[in-house]
Design a protein around this nucleic acid. Sequence first.
DNA 1: AAAATCCGCAACCGCACGCTA
DNA 2: GTAGCGTGCGGTTGCGGATTT
Length: 322
Amino acid sequence: MGRSPCCDENGLKKGPWTPEEDQKLIQYIQKHGHGSWRALPKLAGLNRCGKSCRLRWTNYLRPDIKRGKFSQDEEQTILHLHSILGNKWSAIAANLPGRTDNEIKNFWNTHLKKKLIHMGIDPMTHRPRTDIFASLPHLIALANLKNMIDNNHHQWDDHGVRMQADALQVAKAQYLQCILQSFSSNNNNININTSVPSPAVHFESNPPIATIDPYQPSMEEMISQQCSEFTAFEGTLPPLPKSTVMTTTTMTMLPPMMVSDLAHHDDTVSLPPLTEVSIEGNPGEDCGTPSYGGGGGGGFSGFCPELLLDDPFNYDFHSNFN
DNA sequence: AAAATCCGCAACCGCACGCTA
DNA sequence: GTAGCGTGCGGTTGCGGATTT
């Protein structure tokens, strides 16, 4: 079954309306009312489908449409109603005289949503986005770590490079676990790929100066760049490679940063000086496939996003891999 | 100054639903 | 009960102007 599209006939015009078409539509509706939208185009002498005419009228030509910028009051109303109604644009529009659902939807997508994200508020739940922002400093550390490895590998011997790479691998795993735990604590249906775009960080020098780009690439893109081998991380984490070798070494990593430092998305943020942390392991040992979550033998020690938020880079990789 | 990129918005698309014959 | 019509709705697309490189 299913009805055929109203405008699948060939030859009907699509795309932007001309002033002449607008005039024909206005004059016809003012004289006769719109009546049947399907019949209207023929009667009005328009080479358009009825649906196109209806949209043009309701979204643009209707005489009671208020155009121009949204006022503060209107903005507050939209925010309030959206927190109650979600993406029910027509229901929201019903409370804003002179505004169309399409106009409100566009305003939301281009302004209000971004504004909420900048304020650290999840635009869908209207609640603070602690999960995402708690993860951001980890992302910076990972990006920095990778940056150091990429930029300095020529200065290190093979063993050193391998230790750094191993540590990076562990850090990646912990970071992903952090994100997954954060998500799972708020939502049992983990799906990072569908989350809203988040601020991203670019590193342009070493030591790094990070510029915060509020929207592109998204955090998810950033994660997949930094953790290219973990491209599919819905559900459970992939195991670390069996070749992972833990050794005792000292790494330079970024110290803790306040999330508020990252809130000024338009600015360039100079990161604090690098500090050292210890990573311990058994030199030369193959540590097998570690388990995640710290339970039982093997695997990382207990992991708590909240603790890491307090002191995000006090990593202590006391692994007991055997 | 030209090219590339970003961004806002009008318009389109396809589905859902109520109504009627 | 079913088919078709009219309309509403939310998501998506793509054009064109603005901004950046």
